[in-house]
């Protein structure tokens, strides 16, 4: 069992408080949703968790270990992997090489020996992009490149997986497949933190949801609770909207 905890994290960019005392946790075996309108601070929180952004206050812990001094690569080695909202696939490498880089890196701190090539191929099959293995990433459409990022993140064998809008660029069927994959990953013991705008996907895959607005967690609960929360409807969906 692993547990990623974000405690009282605030991030200030000049005069803008992008994240304001955010509190939540992600545990193995669950899919946790992090939703909120654009600019709510979701990606900034991801950057804080992975060490790309230093928080102005608060802390991030993994299994009660404080990550404050851990550089991004250390956090990856401790078991936190992520995808990016703005694509960060290794463009000049092929899809398989993208995954291979991560699988080969993972050997550095893995306790068991394995063949990185076989692991990469297995992950490509699981994410459903085996057919694209030899394509160069920069030539892929957005949706496929997001799946490459997901496969690459899985290749470091994470305990906690952060996904930043993984479904954008995917069509409806592909999104369904992604949802099923996330549920299956959680069943295998992975903790997933999902930032997503596709509400059906969030509602069908997440066990628990945190709603962020203006950097603050304004509501939390199961999908049903969040859907009926009056404040969420006001802040996030507008007063007349329904989910």
């Amino acid at each position: 069992m692993s547990r990623l905890a974000v405690s009282d994290v605030s991030v200030r960019f000049g005069g803008l408080l992008a994240v304001d005392g955010a509190n939540f946790s992600v545990e193995s075996g669950s899919v946790i949703g992090l939703i909120g309108p654009n600019g709510a601070g979701k990606t900034t929180l991801f950057n804080v968790i992975t060490g790309l952004q230093t928080p102005s206050a608060g802390s991030v812990t993994l299994d009660d270990r404080d990550l404050r001094r851990a550089k991004p690569y250390k956090r990856a080695r401790l078991g936190i992997a992520r995808t990016f909202q703005r694509l960060e696939a290794f463009g000049s490498l092929t899809v398989r090489e993208n995954v291979l880089v991560a699988a080969e890196m993972r050997k550095r701190w893995a306790t068991t020996r394995y063949d990185a090539g076989i692991v990469a191929d297995k992950i490509l099959a699981r994410v459903g992009i085996t057919a694209l293995a030899e394509a160069r990433c920069e030539q892929l459409p957005t949706g496929s490149a997001r799946l490459v990022e997901l496969a690459r993140a899985l290749a470091v064998d994470p305990r906690i997986l952060l996904l930043d809008e993984p479904s954008s660029g995917l069509d409806e069927d592909e999104t369904d497949a992604l949802g099923a994959l996330l549920v299956a990953l959680a069943r295998d013991g992975l903790g997933v933190l999902l930032v997503e705008h596709d509400m059906p996907l969030v509602m069908t895959t997440c066990d628990y949801i945190h709603v962020l607005d203006f950097g603050r967690v304004i509501a939390q609960g199961t999908p049903t609770q969040v859907q009926t929360d009056a404040e969420v409807q006001r802040a996030y969906l507008g007063s007349k909207a329904t989910m």
Partner: peptide, 18 residues
């Protein structure tokens, strides 16, 4: 491959443990 990955995206390379 790691070198090329670093060139293409330092941020992503760091988050896979480079």
């Amino acid at each position: 491959r790691r070198l090329v990955a670093m060139r293409d995206s330092e941020a992503a390379a760091a988050t896979v443990g480079v």
